[in-house]
Design a protein around this nucleic acid. Structure first.
Length: 866
RNA sequence: GGGCGUGUAGUUCAGUUGGCUAGAACGUUCGGAUCACACCCGAGAGGUCACAGGUUCGAGUCCUGUCACGCCCACCA
């Protein structure tokens, strides 16, 4: 072993290089984007992870994609801004801190501390534990401009949020109103429609008797929520329902409450469902609420904001949890003989996205936003001014945009941007600062977290000043995010962008797939099926993890993740590492190597690899331009492992062309750098690439003149490929005949007419220890192991196992016959010959001829076996 | 109820405007410590392209229908 090779470890060890290079990149400020740069801008804003978050596989996917885009653009000569940051995540963060404090025994409920003290604790927690994910992103190699890290509750950012609120209020788009909202009784706050997840739930349909006042008669109502009957104010029937029409206006005695309620007629009732009679609970059901408004019914609130029954539910039920109350009500109805039947019933129940408890429709005073810029935002995507990848998500987007409902933006939380509105008696003031004078109290609510994140693309860049960063980098170029937040975030950013920048926030949106486990389940903490990416980085290296993931990340398809994928990535990095070791060894043996200048100086292998390299550059570039990351990764993998290592390096072992090895390897490093930043940086420096690889030029396809000059024409390559075919055939013969790999054998090639194995000596050593010669007129004296290929026949002279030979040839004959039958049939079909494209017909004819020739040869060999 | 997506080797996936013997990786079988790499090298086996029709000289690919799985949207109690 040479001196140089022994200095480089045999296996790639990511730990030795990752930390070192990341520290240097930061120190040199390579990721910092200079708005004064003359280079064209490329920008991307990170989807800000929750400040409480830790890195998940979803983040790894998402941020690797962004890093690939950013790093490639730097190499292509853009000034790149990848703007990072975190989101204050109202409900999630408040819940985490409250839980922590409870666990420490510090409090039983946040009320114990009060608003100010509690918020102090949240900030404390944020400073101490928040933003772990930022450190983790660095481990992954993300090239964010950390000097511009933002947080949605930064002072400047908060000011943007309030300014936008005040502005929309003044425009009349934000208003306050008492409405039915989605209430989360666990978090005790209102939610937007988007934060409610409909889940199929096994429930029951209870049929309950409602007797008429002073009569034995009764009607039957069916309900899925018997506990709400305590707040019933009517029973409704369809006005056209002949069964009940005459009952309208009569009085019923509400069971358990002994309260008189009327029978009303409303067209919203579907006579075909249940019994055709609907109990009306104005304060606890959206449809009932609307009916109550139409019929002027009172709103009796029997369930409180904590999900417990109120005094209005009656002494028997006051204070019970809504689900306990359901059981109690059912029990009591049964006792009184009012429960007629119970059916199993599957229906959709809304659950809180955060706390997972069933949502309670709840009547309360809330703030709403009428969305701005709706037509313009819809059109931008429909007309492709903002392009979605994959394109099909535009349908989802436009469907939502065409069915917008006002956004409930107030939350009954403490952690968040407090609504900038003050009250004094009947007076209402909205402004950035508290109004002058005494007696004003500020609205206690905060804003929905998304009401701050929808401003992310410009509020992070110094808005409202349209200078510097904002001027250079807005609108951003690409956005990479999950389709699960297309409404929450993407759509709203588009509207905010047009409203406040008069310009789209981004040009392209790439929607990633969702990472699932090996059997297709969504990864989640509770299932415990989500590997910790940091463990994976420790085991396989950041580059290995990134590359392994990229290989299996098809555009817009969910990804079934298996740790095995990381092995593939790690192995590939190791392969690359060892290719470098090989080149180093060669260099130490040929220190005076010069790049050949004339065509004659290039071997067949050189021409082949240069041609394939050109192909790889074209394909990788095209794939990345189309956001087809997995295609790019696959192309690189095949080129490096297959073309470069398996063939070119093997060929170089006999005669190495250092200049070509260097050229190809240098190109590989540059193509691979966006995917695997660490190892490529390490090898780039090792191999004498100079300063950091990050700003090295993205490889360009060779111009045709150069390829022609050195002789890398299609025809040359075809000839070289025939030689590679022969190598494979020779290897197969050795394998079939069980020849020991160290035993020297003799091969004779009999080329088909028109072929000439000019490079035979260049490929001989790839066939194992052997003597080779080409001989057109060769006739074996006795049965000799042989194989008929497209380009000629190959004989392995020496001992032979007649049976093995017979089996091989018989199988080959069967294969040929199968194809020949198909081809013959096609050509015998008059329609095919008459109607198919002439080139297709010609192809079949050529194939037929070739197969027939091969068949004759195989048959002759079989006959010779006797 | 409406919309979208997916069914190809044991597994995960490629498969361009219809046209060479439907490819790859992992796994598997056989052989191998050869001086870049055993995280490796060489050679093989393995497929009724979910199903049924249709268009076409020709369908994994286009059309219609069916089945299965997944996701999104929708206030029938």
């Amino acid at each position: 072993m040479s001196a140089v090779a022994s200095e480089i470890p045999k296996a790639y060890d990511p730990k030795q290089v990752e930390e070192k290079w990341y520290a240097e990149w930061l120190e040199k400020g390579y990721f910092a984007a200079n708005p004064a740069s003359q280079k064209p801008p490329y920008s991307i804003v990170i989807p800000p992870p929750n400040v409480t978050g830790v890195l998940t596989m979803g983040h790894v996917l998402n941020n690797t994609l962004q890093d690939i885009l950013a790093r490639r653009k730097r190499m292509q000569g853009y000034v790149v801004l990848w703007l990072p940051g975190t989101d204050h995540a109202g409900i999630a963060t408040q819940a985490v801190v409250e839980k922590t404090l409870k666990k420490q025994g510090a409090i039983r409920h946040r009320d114990d501390l009060g608003r100010e003290k509690f918020l102090e604790k949240v900030w404390e927690w944020k400073e101490k534990h928040g933003g772990i994910i930022i450190q983790q992103l660095k481990k992954l190699g993300c090239s964010c401009d950390w000097t511009r890290e933002r947080f949605t509750m930064d002072e400047a950012y908060s000011l943007c949020v309030l300014q936008v609120f005040v502005d929309l209020y003044k425009k009349g788009l934000i208003y306050r109103g008492k409405r039915m909202v989605n209430w989360d009784p666990a978090a005790r706050t209102a939610l937007s429609d988007e934060e409610v997840i409909m889940t199929e739930t096994q429930g029951h349909l209870w049929h309950i008797k409602y007797p008429f006042v002073g009569s034995e008669e009764f009607v039957v109502v069916a309900t899925t929520r018997p506990e709400t009957m305590l707040g019933d104010e009517a029973v409704a029937v369809n006005p056209d329902d002949p069964r009940y029409r005459q009952l309208v206006g009569k009085k019923l005695l509400l069971p358990l409450r002994n309260k008189e309620i009327p029978v009303i007629a409303d067209a919203a009732v579907d006579p075909k469902f249940g019994t055709g009679c609907v109990k009306v609970t104005p304060a606890h059901d959206v449809a009932d609420y609307e009916m109550a408004v139409r019929h002027n019914l009172p709103f009796t609130m029997v369930i409180g904001p904590d999900g417990k029954m109120t005094e209005a539910a009656g002494d028997d039920y006051d204070g019970l949890d809504r689900l306990e109350c359901r059981e109690a009500v059912v029990e009591d109805l049964k006792e009184q003989g009012l429960l007629l039947k119970v059916e199993d019933y599957t229906h959709n129940v809304g659950h809180s996205e955060r706390t997972h408890v069933p949502i309670e429709p709840y009547l309360s005073e809330q703030w709403f936003l009428k969305y701005p810029q709706v037509p313009r935002s819809t059109e931008a995507v429909e007309k492709g001014e903002i392009a979605f990848y994959p394109e099909r998500w535009t349908k989802t987007y436009t469907h939502w945009m065409h069915n917008l409902r006002d956004w409930c933006i107030s939350r009954q939380l403490w952690w968040g941007h407090r609504i900038p509105v003050w009250y004094r008696g009947d007076e209402v003031y909205c402004g950035l600062d508290a109004p002058k004078g005494t007696g004003w109290t500020q609205d206690p609510d905060v804003l929905d977290t998304w009401f701050s994140s929808w401003l992310w693309p410009f509020a992070t860049m110094g808005w409202p000043e349209k200078t510097g960063t904002l001027k250079k980098f807005y609108p951003t170029t690409d956005l990479v995010t999950g389709p699960d937040i297309i409404f929450f975030w993407v759509a709203r950013m588009i509207m905010a962008g047009y409203e406040y920048m008069d310009e789209k926030p981004f040009s392209n949106v790439y929607f990633t797939g969702i990472i699932r486990d090996a059997i297709g389940r969504k990864m989640s903490k509770s299932l415990g099926n989500s590997p910790d990416p940091l463990d994976l980085i420790a085991k396989y290296g950041a580059d290995g993890l990134r590359f392994g993931l990229m290989l299996i990340a098809p555009q817009g398809q969910d990804i079934l993740f298996d740790e095995k994928r990381c092995e593939v990535g790690r192995n590939f990095m190791n392969k690359l590492w060892n290719a470098a070791r090989f080149i180093q060894m060669q260099r130490s043996q040929h220190s005076d190597a010069q790049a050949p200048k004339h065509s004659g100086a290039y071997s067949a292998h050189d021409l082949k690899i240069l041609f394939e390299m050109n192909d790889a550059i074209v394909k990788v570039s095209a794939a990345l331009d189309a956001y087809k990351f997995n295609e790019a990764a696959k192309e690189l993998y095949d080129f490096v492992w297959g073309d470069f290592c398996d063939w070119y390096i093997e060929a170089s072992k006999v005669s190495a062309n250092i200049a070509v090895l260097d050229e190809v390897f240098n190109t590989i490093l540059r193509l691979l750098h966006p995917f695997a930043p660490f190892i490529t940086e390490e090898l780039w420096r090792d191999m004498g690439g100079g300063d950091t690889i990050q700003f090295a030029d993205w490889p360009q396809p060779q111009d045709q003149a150069r390829l022609d000059q050195i002789g890398a024409t299609r025809e040359t390559l075809r000839i070289i490929d025939t030689h590679y075919q022969l190598v494979s055939a020779a290897r197969k013969l050795r394998n079939d005949e069980n020849v020991d790999p160290r035993t020297k054998v003799e091969f004779v090639f009999v080329p088909k007419a028109g072929f000439n194995f000019v490079y035979i000596n260049d490929v001989a050593h790839l066939m194992g220890p052997c003597e080779v010669r080409g001989e057109s007129a060769y006739q074996p004296e006795r049965p000799t192991p042989s194989l008929v290929t497209d380009v000629g026949t190959i004989f392995m002279v020496g001992g032979v196992d007649v049976e093995v030979q017979r089996q091989r040839l018989t199988k080959q004959l069967a294969d040929i016959d199968k194809q020949l039958t198909a081809t013959d049939a096609k050509l015998a079909n008059e329609n095919f010959v008459a109607k198919a494209a002439p080139i297709a017909v010609q192809r079949e004819r050529d194939k037929q001829q070739q197969l027939q020739e091969q068949r004759d040869k195989v048959q002759a060999l079989l006959k010779a076996l006797g």
